[in-house]
Design a protein around this nucleic acid. Structure first.
Lengths: 169, 169
DNA sequence: TACTAAATTTTTAAGCTTGAAATATCTTTC
DNA sequence: GAAAGATATTTCAAGCTTAAAAATTTAGTA
C-alpha cells in the first residue's frame, strides 16, 4: 500500500482516535489536578500517598513491597520513597516477613487506617461531584468501550480473544 | 438529610462514577506508558518534550514561555527545564521579543521541525493501534460525554449553563 | 559444600511537576 | 520621575517517576 492509499485509509479513523486520546488525557488531567489540589489543601497529602494507603486499606494483612508496586502498577523503586515518608508520618509500618529476610510486609497502622477512612469518604464525594454530568448508563457504556484498550492482548478483537482463550488454556 | 439518607441517595451513582474514574485513570495510564516507552526507545525523547514540540509546531511563529505553559496547562517553572534541554539538543531556540526584555519567543528550529514531523507521523499510528477496539461512533459518543467534565463551570447542569450564558453575556 | 541463578528490595541518575520565592522588566500613578 | 504595582521568567525545594545498577538473601544444582 503506498503512502497516499495509506493516508486515505488511516486518516478518518486515526484522526477520531487521536482526538479521543487527547480528550481522555484532558479529562483525566483535569480530574487528577483537582484531586491533587484537594488532597493537598484538605489533608496535606498527595495522590501517590493516597493510592498507597488505599491499596493497603484493601489488604489489611499488608503487602510486600513488590506486591504493592505490582498492585499500583508503578516501578519498584518508586514505592520505596513514598512508603518511607508514610512511615515517617506514622501511617504505615514495615514488618519483617518470617522466613524471608529480603522482604518486608507493609501495612497501615491504626492511625493510618483512621486517616485513610477520613480521606476516602471525602474522596468519593469529590469524584462524584467532578463527574456529575455523567449518568450511570453513560458510565457503564464508556467503561465497556474502554475495556478493549487495556485488554491483555490489545490490537486484537475481543471476540477473537475469547475464542482463543478456550483453546489456549 | 441525615447520614443514612445521604448514603442511600449517593451510593449508586457515586459508586458508578468512582468506577468510571478508576477506569479512565487505568486507560490513560496504559496508553501514556506505551507512548512514553515508544518515544524513549524509538526517538530517545519523552512525552513532555513531545508535547512542547507539538505545541510549537502548531505555532510556527513561536510562543512566549508563559503562552507555552498556558497552552500545555502546566506550571511556568516546569516549561523552563524542558525547553532548556530542547535548546541544548538544537530542536528549539529562544529569541528576544522586541520591545519587552522580560519575555522570550520560543520556536522550533528547522532541525526541530523535521524531527517533530518524523515523530508525529509515527505517534498517530501508535494511538490508532492502541485504540483499535474503539469505533468512530464510540469515540464521538465518549468525547461528547466527557465534555461535561471539563466544561468551564462544572458541577452544574449543561442546560442550566446554556440558559445562563444568554443572560450573562 | 560451593556455584549459579533467581527473587526482593534499595539506591542512583536523570527528568518531570508543582507552588512559592526571587529577578528583572514594564506600566501606572501620583 | 520616583514609587507602587503588574507581568515574564527563572530558581528553588520537595516530591514523584522510571530504568538500571547494586546489595542482600534465597533456592537450586553439581
Amino acid at each position: 500500500m503506498n503512502d497516499l492509499a495509506k493516508a486515505i485509509d488511516e486518516t478518518p479513523m486515526a484522526k477520531a482516535r487521536l482526538r479521543l486520546w487527547l480528550k481522555l488525557l484532558k479529562t483525566t488531567n483535569h480530574i487528577e489536578s483537582r484531586l491533587r489540589e484537594n488532597l493537598r489543601t484538605e489533608f496535606d497529602t498527595t495522590l501517590p500517598r493516597f493510592d498507597v494507603m488505599s491499596a493497603l486499606s484493601r489488604h489489611r494483612d499488608g503487602l510486600k513491597m513488590s506486591q504493592l508496586s505490582g498492585v499500583l502498577k508503578v516501578s519498584n523503586g518508586n514505592v520505596t520513597g513514598i512508603v518511607d515518608r508514610l512511615v515517617d508520618d506514622g501511617f504505615v509500618a514495615r514488618s519483617p516477613v518470617p522466613g524471608d529476610r529480603r522482604a518486608w510486609r507493609v501495612h497501615l497502622t491504626p492511625n493510618g487506617m483512621a486517616e485513610f477512612e477520613r480521606q476516602a469518604i471525602v474522596h468519593v464525594r469529590w469524584v462524584d461531584d467532578l463527574l456529575t454530568g455523567i449518568s450511570s448508563d453513560d458510565a457503564e457504556k464508556i467503561m465497556a468501550d474502554l475495556d478493549s484498550v487495556t485488554a491483555p492482548a490489545s490490537s486484537f478483537d475481543g471476540a477473537v480473544n475469547k475464542s482463543l482463550e478456550k483453546e489456549t488454556t
